[in-house]
């Protein structure tokens, strides 16, 4: 078996193969439903209805998509420069901590929201700055350092919530005090359970798109990602670009945590993120690292989670089916995208 590049893949190939990846994921869902002893058609139907079947479901999906857009953008930006930031989870919590620090009375309206959002971004950027400096200065691989930082950050949050940041009125439960009203993100439309974090996420996606396509930095970032040697040869300041990319990526991931606290939960607890940082990798890869497409894939991924929750309550298939499907979708999709440009030949 040998691989052969396809110079000009046809449109059918470029659409057909990703579609095949999604079909394979759907078949996988049906198979898992059968394994769980449920009717596959009912399970698929319940996932779809549970995700988008009612106004309530749709808003729930969009709420769930909000942090995923931010972490998906964070990963997309970093991966585009081949900076392997697997630490979005840690950066997310850095943003969430800042939301509580500044949102529980330290600042009042109208300063609190913009200041705490910016401070959250700075905090997230700083969390990623360490690993990226270790990479550029000492050549330490950032995959492992960012992964390990996730565990360190979770323990730090646990310390905060049981110590200095513990809610004295929390009945002993490890959670932070609630944010003051001024520090909460309002709903976009009164009466609809969707907060401004979603709108901010859309704005962030457009902003990242503009940065990537319309600025020198964006060009340099893509150059570093596509061929680091060539970029260096062309005089691109590779290390500076990597550090700037890290700051942007860390800042975006932090907004996920910030908006979850300020928009949805109103306080920080240890279960704030059910792995939004890791799921961001799936969101970004399904979007082929395109920031605008991240919005769509984040809504899709959120829909799978929300729909599976609803389906699980009705059909009794474990909710972990969502995680399995999304991990499979990731692998199917990277293979499909590869096969768009390459074909397998005998010999």
């Amino acid at each position: 078996m040998r691989l052969e590049p396809i110079p000009n893949p046809t449109l059918a190939r470029r659409i057909g193969l990703p579609a095949a990846a999604l079909t394979a994921t759907t078949l996988m869902a049906a198979l898992l439903a059968l394994v769980a002893g449920a009717n596959p058609f009912a399970v698929l139907g319940q996932i779809v209805t549970g995700a988008v079947g009612s106004r309530f479901a749709l808003l729930e999906t969009l709420n769930r998509a909000t942090p995923l857009i931010f972490t998906g953008l964070a990963v997309a930006v970093a991966f585009k420069a081949k900076l392997w930031n697997i630490g979005a989870e840690a950066q997310l919590y850095a943003g969430a901590i800042v939301a509580v620090l500044l949102g529980t009375g330290a600042l009042g309206s109208p300063l609190v929201l913009p200041v705490s959002a910016l401070a959250a971004m700075v905090a997230g950027a700083l969390v990623l700055l360490g690993p990226v400096l270790l990479k550029t200065r000492l050549g330490v691989d950032e995959v492992v350092t960012t992964l390990l930082l996730n565990f360190i950050m979770l323990l730090f949050v646990s310390y905060l919530l049981e110590g200095p940041m513990k809610d004295p009125m929390g009945m002993g439960w490890p959670k932070s005090p609630a944010l003051i009203k001024d520090a909460r993100l309002p709903r976009i439309v009164e009466g609809l359970r969707l907060h401004w974090g979603f709108a901010l996420a859309l704005i962030a996606a457009v902003a990242v798109h503009v940065i990537e396509r319309r600025t020198t930095f964006g060009f340099e970032m893509r150059a570093v990602g596509s061929n680091i040697g060539a970029a260096r040869f062309m005089g691109v300041p590779v290390n500076r670009v990597l550090i700037q990319t890290a700051l942007l990526s860390g800042g975006l991931a932090a907004l996920a945590g910030w908006s979850e606290v300020a928009g949805l939960k109103g306080h920080l607890s240890q279960d704030l993120s059910p792995g939004f940082g890791y799921t961001g990798i799936i969101v970004a890869m399904l979007a082929l690292l395109n920031p605008l497409a991240v919005v769509g894939t984040a809504i899709f991924v959120a829909g799978v989670f929300v729909g599976s929750d609803a389906m699980s309550r009705a059909a009794g298939v474990p909710t972990y089916i969502a995680d399995m499907l999304l991990a499979s979708a990731l692998l199917f999709m990277v293979l499909a995208i590869f096969l768009v440009r390459m074909r397998v030949v005998r010999g």
Binding site: I282, Y320, D323, L326, S328, L331
Partner: peptide, 12 residues
């Protein structure tokens, strides 16, 4: 991807 798949397969 393999880590996510293996972990979720175990939970499921």
């Amino acid at each position: 991807g393999v880590t996510l798949l293996a972990t979720s397969t175990s939970s499921f």
